[in-house]
């Protein structure tokens, strides 16, 4: 499977990574190369093989329903590029 420019553009937007137009071509060639190499997996017969869910042979642990965390808005926003009155600020979202 080779990736065309349009696909790379679409994927890059899905991943929210700006890619300048002049880099789309080289990037699509590079990604196609990697995908081509990956596609050797097609040789493996995986009929009736279950996909791996976890290598850890254990069951999901549960926590009790008690409040043990939170109550520190200043820690939560300490690293924020922009915050005010305890809120994070982002460019205005128009819905």
């Amino acid at each position: 499977m080779s990736l065309d420019k349009e696909t790379v553009h679409r994927i890059a937007f899905l991943a929210r990574v700006a890619v300048p137009d002049d880099q789309l071509d080289p990037l699509s060639r590079e990604l196609s190369g990697i995908l081509h190499w990956i596609e050797q997996l097609g040789e493996v017969d995986t009929t009736s093989v279950e996909p791996m869910t976890s290598v850890a042979e254990m069951t999901l642990p549960w926590r009790d329903d008690v409040v043990t965390d939170g109550g520190y808005p200043e820690r939560v926003t300490a690293n924020a590029p922009e915050s005010q009155d305890g809120f994070y600020l982002v460019p205005k979202v128009v819905e």
């Binding site: 997996l41 097609g42 493996v44 995986t46 996909p51 791996m52 869910t53 290598v55």
Partner: peptide, 12 residues
């Protein structure tokens, strides 16, 4: 992705 997780099972 699904194919890879199946091959991963085989590797394990």
């Amino acid at each position: 992705y699904l194919k890879a997780q199946k091959v991963r099972t085989l590797i394990a």
